[in-house]
Design a protein around this nucleic acid. Sequence first.
DNA 1: GTTCCCATGGCAATCGTTTACATGGGAGAG
DNA 2: CTCTCCCATGTAAACGATTGCCATGGGAAC
Lengths: 355, 355
Amino acid sequence: MVPKQPGSPPAEGKAPYSLRHVAQLAGVSVATASRVMSGSSHPVSERTRELVLAAADSLSFVPNRLARALVTARSHTVGVIVHDISDPYFGDIVKGLEDRIHAEDYQLFVANSDRDPEKELNYVRAFDAHQVDAIVFAASSLTDPDYANTLRKLAASFRARGGVIVLLSDHLLEGPRVLFDNRRAAADMVGYLANRGHRRIGYIGGPPDIEVSHVRLAGFNDAVAKFGLSAGPEYTANGRFTAKGGGDAMAELLERVDVTAVLAANDLMAIGATRRLLSAGIAVPDDISVAGLDNIAIAEYGPVPLTTMQIPTYELGQQGGALLLAAVGGGDPADARLTGSIIERESVAGIGTSA
Amino acid sequence: MVPKQPGSPPAEGKAPYSLRHVAQLAGVSVATASRVMSGSSHPVSERTRELVLAAADSLSFVPNRLARALVTARSHTVGVIVHDISDPYFGDIVKGLEDRIHAEDYQLFVANSDRDPEKELNYVRAFDAHQVDAIVFAASSLTDPDYANTLRKLAASFRARGGVIVLLSDHLLEGPRVLFDNRRAAADMVGYLANRGHRRIGYIGGPPDIEVSHVRLAGFNDAVAKFGLSAGPEYTANGRFTAKGGGDAMAELLERVDVTAVLAANDLMAIGATRRLLSAGIAVPDDISVAGLDNIAIAEYGPVPLTTMQIPTYELGQQGGALLLAAVGGGDPADARLTGSIIERESVAGIGTSA
DNA sequence: GTTCCCATGGCAATCGTTTACATGGGAGAG
DNA sequence: CTCTCCCATGTAAACGATTGCCATGGGAAC
């Protein structure tokens, strides 16, 4: 490694200017320059400060955060692991997270796990190697048993280093979490329908082997009990989480019971159900009301603009960021629980009221 | 700073184990341990290598990439600046980019500019400070003049350091780029309609002050000329880039000319146009065919499943990643130009053919 | 048995910061 | 006019890796 002349012009491939150049130009020591640039609490006279600032400015000095991270053991970076960043659900979360932490001058690494356990573990290792201050798991943990063990070990060693882990969904790891209450979301939506006079409400659920199906069904049942609605297994039908799945389930329901409203486990199914009703000559919402959950982008543009529940994905990310910042700062923040808000469009009508 | 006993148990908040620990456990020097762990070309005997590897493994050693970056002047990180990561257009790009660079062990920083010049510049500075090896601008540059100047300066100093800049859209900066050919996309879509027998094709354009409107209109005109279609200003109408804008423009067009097909500058406008036709009792595609551009998620679920053109966003990101890797490796990669592919759904019918 | 070479490994400088500790000097108190 | 004390600054040791250069030593060649 060839020794570098202090004061020499910056070489290609190296940082254009370092603190040494700034210090030299300002006629002070590197330590003093550092204290000015990093906003240290160590006192520096006003005159010197200005000298340094002027020097830094004239060189367009950009401090090397990696060097700083090396000594402070804080990189001011955060890594987030999502299943698929092209999915707006995660995109929104990431946006909320990024907005929040950027306000405190943190940078965000993004990783796509593609739901592959091996890939996800590698990202955790990579984040660890890059000394991130925190890792955010935006999605639920996977079910592979080897993965669970390895992840626990990695998490432990990451934490030993001072790393923070935040969870935005159900997860096998411990740590500060912020969760969306799916059960309550479904219940609230049924409550909304009940408040508008509906007593016979059907439920179109997703595949039984997916966690969120269960949770939302439970919420549906909660509300059925709470409001004393017509109940029974004949009021629910299942299908895949697609428009077609929703349509088929709707058809099934139609044969069994006489409902005035239907709640679908997600918007795609709600849209499918709406289609099916319309093509059977049943008016939505005049004959049957349809409500969804999730408020995906399509919801507004389906056959009938869909009344549904917005999942606060942006807030999920934002709250996650807040938790993370608190924890990195040494605090022990409490978990957060978020609820959705109902988006009223045109697929739900009232019964026996003017609404 | 209290001097650290080599071999002492790792302290809270510090890297659990460093190369020193590994070296010590393996009974070799730090230099040798480094050579093994980093895959250096410097020869190390097989026996020693195994010793080191075993030691590293037993300590679950994770090399500190920041320290490495400091000396090698390569951080193995990349920053991408998008307008809005919750927009699937950018989400797809980021996914393609991330997938590509992850294969070479690079990590990706993501930043949301929100189309704010000041914010964008700050991100560039932050990325620079974090020593990213490359910055990817996923969107077009903004128009603020101060921004342009400052950005040029920042880019120059970033490059002086050895940084690479890649552009995924029209941009004031120079550098390797990969572009989606909007002009050709529009032309291809018109060609598709012409090939199915349409001679009188209308164009619903976006606001004149938006660059992409112009480019797509130019493509439309290219094809009109090439295929000798009915031409004239009466065949085009403009509106805002929304469903309503498309509907209004469609109505305008309807009053002026008698067309058998319409191309809209984007899918939202195409959907709006379709709605308007349908509510005027004009069948789509039987009376008039409608085609869009972009293939947004809604395209499939509108009043009539829309035939449109898919923008290869994922590939845009992927190619960007490839260019970046080549450039970081010291190469001078050629620009790339991508074209879309037509997604045939149900909004276009043939004329005088069986199709 | 001597010389030489090359494979292997260690020493130490270095990347760009931060920060504990040392130091000098001026102001205020006595 | 001294003696403190504190403010401002500097010196130098880290942080955890990489790598140029040198040292060593065993085997091959003579």
